[in-house]
């Protein structure tokens, strides 16, 4: 209850704060979701993608 009321008082009470949180959250969510899905995708396809075998063929740098 205290957590939810703290949440309510912090973010939901004023509409301006609520809308601001939504838009900031959308930006953060977009970035985070992209990173998360990419991480899962790379783990699922471990060893198959070019970035996994690239080191075998790069000679310099």
């Amino acid at each position: 209850m205290s957590v939810s009321s703290a949440l309510y008082n912090t973010f939901f009470k004023r509409n301006s704060v609520f809308v601001g949180t939504v838009f900031a959250g959308a930006f953060a969510f977009g970035v985070g979701f992209d990173i998360g899905v990419t991480k899962f995708y790379d783990a699922w396809n471990k060893g198959k993608q070019w970035k996994d075998i690239r080191h075998k063929y790069v000679t310099e740098e």
């Binding site: 939810s4 009321s5 949440l7 309510y8 973010f11 939901f12 609520f18 809308v19 949180t21 939504v22 838009f23 959250g25 959308a26 930006f27 969510f29 977009g30 979701f33």
Partner: peptide, 22 residues
């Protein structure tokens, strides 16, 4: 469930905004 309801409405807004942006 006031906080929960607002959280759900807010999450709907967050994901819709993210989808719209992409």
């Amino acid at each position: 469930n006031r906080a929960l309801s607002y959280f759900m409405v807010g999450s709907l807004g967050v994901i819709s905004a993210s989808a719209a942006k992409s």
